[in-house]
Design a protein around this nucleic acid. Sequence first.
DNA 1: GTATGTGAACTATTTCACAGCT
DNA 2: AGCTGTGAAATAGTTCACATAC
Lengths: 222, 222
Amino acid sequence: MKSVTKFVKVVTNMGHRKIPESTISRLFVYLREIASLANMNIRTISSGELGERLNLSDAQVRKDLGYFGQFGVSGSGYDTNELKAALEKILGKNKTWNVAVVGVGHLGSALLTYPGFKEHGLNLVAAFDSDARKIGKEISGVTIEAFENMPKAVKNNKVSIGVIAVPAQRAQEVADKFVSAGIKCILNFAPTSLNVPEDVKVKDVDLSRELETLSYFLAGKK
Amino acid sequence: MKSVTKFVKVVTNMGHRKIPESTISRLFVYLREIASLANMNIRTISSGELGERLNLSDAQVRKDLGYFGQFGVSGSGYDTNELKAALEKILGKNKTWNVAVVGVGHLGSALLTYPGFKEHGLNLVAAFDSDARKIGKEISGVTIEAFENMPKAVKNNKVSIGVIAVPAQRAQEVADKFVSAGIKCILNFAPTSLNVPEDVKVKDVDLSRELETLSYFLAGKK
DNA sequence: GTATGTGAACTATTTCACAGCT
DNA sequence: AGCTGTGAAATAGTTCACATAC
């Protein structure tokens, strides 16, 4: 007697195993590479080849993908078009989000002109500063407003992500105002640790720390 | 018979236990906080209080410091001035390094004007681009040169850190040229994984990935 | 033969918990 | 009593290795 087993691809993480944040981050890297391969008309790739291109082990690639389903074919590898579609679905690349920036100094204005925002589905819709001389100026198609207007603007523009680009000593104050305006997701460029409620996600981007660890490494050799 | 034990503070990691990179990164955070406390004339702080300010556990603080020596006093905590001095020594804050940037587009020019470089002992001494229209222009006191001149300039200026701020598809080429010019330390802003010899340290700063993981988080909550 | 998917083993990092110092 | 320093326990993340599929 023959038994027939049907496998179903799982694209959301149904089994709700805990997924490492590093896995999520690598999935974006896989997607980039796979998209480029698909674009070059390469139809199939193995975990080993993909890992080699990205300086990762074959096992790492398979394990990461394994959290979300079974996308490969034994003996041949992964179909690039299928895997691309699956990753896009997993990672929610089709959605867009509105973003507001507080602090239009060096960093803030560099961010406002950074094309990567738009490329990743993030629309800058508002910018705020408390320096009166900056208010009213336009940058990247957005007019800088007074910080006091922020909560109202967040609601009117359905802002999902708040970006903090002010000096460290003012960052907590801005975070508190974001939280009370209903923001659940903060991108923090200030070199300080923010206190927020549990349901608010903070992503810290601390360029100073990166630079510091680099010079620590250099100090170590010789 | 009584035994007398003498303990000596270890400031370098003599015992060469393996130290997590995350520990190093946190030490810089401790230093910032401790410097600010010392500045406010707070003389002493416990691991618990310090952890609370930084959203870290008391055990984490003690374990991190423990890799480098014994800086605390049982029953009272850490002397802020002593700990500040010790951390500065451990982390090699006094040294400065020369930096060269390749790629003076949006990102590169934002970096060139970023004051954090100088604040962390990094001196921008040269900038390169392969766009003929940019060559000869000055930015932040540095004149943009042709990419071909880079290896010579790296040697003449004793450059220790190479910064890559070009599009992904050109990043490996730039990295190779840095490596053959003798650079041992690369700060990579291109969203791609670089292949370099073992003795070269690459620090990736991938803003796109940070943005992407943010939108993944948002996509997850309905 | 080649490559996946996945428990099991291993490694890294964090947290616990407590002896010992002030 | 209060707090450090540190092995031991727990947790997180990566790599191994192999049964299974094509």
